[in-house]
């Protein structure tokens, strides 16, 4: 099974990189931007075929390593 994990900064956590990217987009002339937040995507390929078990396993991975839950949220998308 394949999965996509998206890790983003929690609301209220300062994202200086996102701010700098927004500044650069503004400078390139993209008008009307309210904000840009930077995150991470992990493409994971695993042996597990059971969706529920795969989801539980990846959730464990997120909690233990992929996200720092002090500042980050994560979402899991299972893809076939």
């Amino acid at each position: 099974m394949k999965a996509k994990v998206i890790v983003t900064l929690k609301n209220g956590v300062l994202d200086p990189q996102g701010k700098a990217i927004k500044g650069s987009l503004d400078a390139l002339g993209f008008a009307g931007l309210n904000s840009v937040r930077q995150g991470k995507i992990f493409d994971i390929n695993l042996d597990e075929t059971d969706k529920e078990k795969a989801n539980a396993k990846i959730k464990d991975m997120c909690e233990k390593l992929l996200a720092n839950t002090v500042i980050e949220n994560y979402t899991i998308q299972l893809i076939e």
Partner: peptide, 10 residues
């Protein structure tokens, strides 16, 4: 506790 993030100045 807490976390060390990227410097504000980048």
């Amino acid at each position: 506790p807490g976390v060390l993030m990227r410097n504000k100045s980048l």
